[in-house]
Design a protein around this nucleic acid. Structure first.
Lengths: 201, 201
DNA sequence: AGTTGATTTAACCATCCGGTTAACAAAGTT
DNA sequence: AACTTTGTTAACCGGATGGTTAAATCAACT
């Protein structure tokens, strides 16, 4: 396995792998210890409890994923540019870390309120700006009238779902990872095209 | 709770509720017993093990959900009609049973091969027909050229994702169930419109 | 009423699992 | 070298959890 890493790094890598694939409930401390090639007691020496360790992994994963997205949504560019940038950034990110979406989704399901507090702190979710921008563009006659929330859902759906369903898709179609990723690369352009075409006047 | 149901029905209802919301790993036999208002030993009297009980629930849930979908995909109608019918049927179904999609998704993740075998048996996944139909329509010049798999992913994404992300959406927007369902009702027409518009010449 | 078979329960068992302890080893520090 | 701090391990602990058992209750039939 990993060799010259510090014990703490070995643990974090192992924990990330196990938590991402099995989720909080399905993960066993022993699994993580095995994966890291160390004694189980050492886990508790470095991270006092399973909860603490999970928390650390969760924050690491979440804060590598969400801020980029939020930044784009809150940026000052035009709506169309925003959509293009968001889709291609999001999909790139997901290709690199394919297990993250379902991990996050399940965590939201497990404890919705705790999740929000953890990832947003006291901030508001950064979608208000986008929704207002959409409404403005509608009133200005730049795009067709549409429920802003529907538009946002469409964007998120098209970007995220394929990664959530990746195992199923690969299973049904017999694709391997490489083929799947090629499809996803295509989507970086196709999704924004589809979205923009649907709202452009 | 439920009153005049047979014990077996009480158990199945309780198990469905608990498994759907907490998943196999997160569910406790005691939870199910409590939910059904019975003794834990009675669970094992009716269903020998947690695995057996889960299996039963899983099959019940899956076979209430998937066949309808498959039938539509394999029917003989035109592509456009198929898309319209599929989206509206699928979304209707999900409104009734909102926890099912994430439940199924997680089960696929947990044991992909076992899942396929369970829900398909020896059959082939019924998407081949649709993919061929799409290719035909492209060659016939009825719709724009598109990778058939991309089209299928788009349809599934737009139909399923909102329900997967339902807790998050409700959390962020502050919607309640009723408002959310209204949005979904809208989608029954908007999603097929969006899809068809994107491929129509 | 008594017999029989299905249902239900309380109590129990064994194992799993998160977490602790105490002893030991390695690496500094003086 | 003696001592302290840090890292690591084997063994253990207690509670949770899936599962079992044996007795009690109920229902149907004679």
């Amino acid at each position: 396995m990993k060799k010259d890493l510090s014990t703490e790094e070995k643990i974090l890598n192992a924990a990330k792998k196990v938590f991402l694939t099995k989720g909080m409930d399905g993960a066993r401390m022993q699994d993580i210890a095995d994966e890291a090639g160390i004694n189980k007691a050492l886990l508790h020496y470095y991270f006092r409890s399973k909860d603490k360790l999970f928390e650390q992994i969760f924050m690491e994963v979440a804060s590598a994923f969400l801020p980029k997205i939020f930044t784009i949504l809150e940026s000052e560019t035009t709506l169309f540019q925003k959509i293009e940038l968001f889709c291609s950034e999001y999909i790139s990110q997901e290709i690199k870390t394919p297990y993250v979406p379902i991990f996050i989704l399940n965590e939201i399901n497990r404890q919705p309120k705790a999740f929000l507090k953890k990832v947003l702190g006291n901030h508001k979710p950064p979608i208000q700006k986008l929704l207002v921008q959409i409404e403005k563009e509608i009133k200005a006659g730049v795009i067709k009238p549409i429920e802003p929330l529907q538009l946002l859902m469409n964007i998120l759906s098209l970007c995220i779902f394929p990664f959530l369903a990746c195992p199923m898709i690969q299973l049904i179609t017999g694709m391997d990872n490489k083929q799947f990723n090629e499809l996803m690369e295509q989507r970086k352009k196709e999704v924004p095209q589809l979205i923009i075409q649907s709202i452009k006047k």
